[in-house]
Amino acid sequence: MTRKQDLLDRRQELADAAIATLAREGMRGLTHRAVDRFAGLPEGTTSYYFRTRQALLQAAVERLAELTAAELQLAPIADPDDLADAAAAVVESWLTSGRDRQLARFELSMEATRRPELREVLRASGASVRAEVAGLLARVGVPDPARRAAVLVACVDGLVFDRLVGAGSADDDPAVLRTVIRTLLA
C-alpha cells in the first residue's frame, strides 16, 4: 500500500470512529480523544489528521455522504415497485445495521443549525443525495423527479427519525416499509 493510501485509510477509519462516537455519545461526547479511544489509537492521532473540531465534523459528514451514495447505487431498477422495494431495503438497513450512522447524521444535522460552516457541508451532501434519488426516479419514469426526490428524501428522513427515536410507530416490518415507500412514490 502506498503512503497516500495509508493516510486515506487512516482518515476514513477516524471518520468512522467519529460517526460511532457521535451515535453513542452525542455531539458533546465527540472529542478528538474520544475518537482516539474508540478507534483504539494513541492519544493525539485524531488531532494529527483533523486539527480542528470543524475538520473532524466535516470528515464525519463527508464519510456519511460517501456511505449513503454507495447505498444508493442500487441494482437495475425497472419500475416504481422495484424502486420501492430497493428503497425499503435501504431504510431497513438504516434502522438496523446502519442505525449508528443515522443517529450520527441527525446529531450533525442538529449541530448544523448552529454552525453555518457545517450547514454548508451538510447542504452539499444533501443536494448530492437528492440528485441521486432524482436520477433513480427519472429512470423509472416518475414525473418531475427533482421535486419528487426532495419530497421523498424529506419523508424518508422523517420516517427514519421517527423510528430511531421511538416517537411513533415501532413497526419496522419490511413489508410495512415497502408500503410506506410505495405510497410516497405514488
Rank of each mutant, 00 (worst) to 15 (best):
L74W: 04
A75G: 06
A75H: 07
I77Q: 05
I77R: 06
D79N: 08
D81P: 04
D82Q: 05
A86N: 10
A87S: 14
A88E: 09
A88Y: 08
A88N: 04
A89L: 12
V90L: 15
V91D: 01
E92Y: 15
S93Y: 07
T96W: 13
T96V: 03
T96F: 15
S97I: 13
G98P: 05
G98H: 02
D100M: 06
D100T: 00
D100N: 04
D100G: 01
R105F: 14
F106Q: 03
E107L: 05
E107A: 06
L108C: 04
S109G: 13
S109C: 07
M110D: 12
M110R: 14
E111N: 10
A112Q: 07
T113A: 11
T113L: 15
R114K: 10
E117C: 01
L118W: 03
L118H: 00
E120N: 10
E120L: 15
V121T: 09
L122D: 00
L122P: 01
A124F: 13
A124N: 08
A124M: 12
G126L: 05
G126D: 01
G126E: 01
A127W: 13
S128M: 11
V129A: 03
V129R: 09
V129K: 07
A131S: 10
V133H: 08
G135D: 01
G135P: 11
L136F: 06
L136V: 08
L137V: 00
L137M: 01
A138P: 13
A138E: 09
R139W: 09
R139Q: 08
R139V: 03
R139E: 07
R139N: 03
V140E: 11
P143N: 05
P143T: 07
D144S: 07
D144Q: 13
P145A: 02
P145C: 03
P145R: 05
P145N: 03
A146K: 15
R147C: 07
R148E: 02
R148G: 00
R148K: 08
A149D: 11
L152K: 02
A154F: 12
A154G: 07
C155L: 15
C155S: 15
V156R: 09
L159V: 06
V160M: 01
F161R: 05
F161M: 03
R163I: 02
R163N: 02
R163P: 03
L164T: 00
L164R: 00
A167D: 12
A167E: 14
G168D: 02
S169I: 10
D171P: 04
D172C: 11
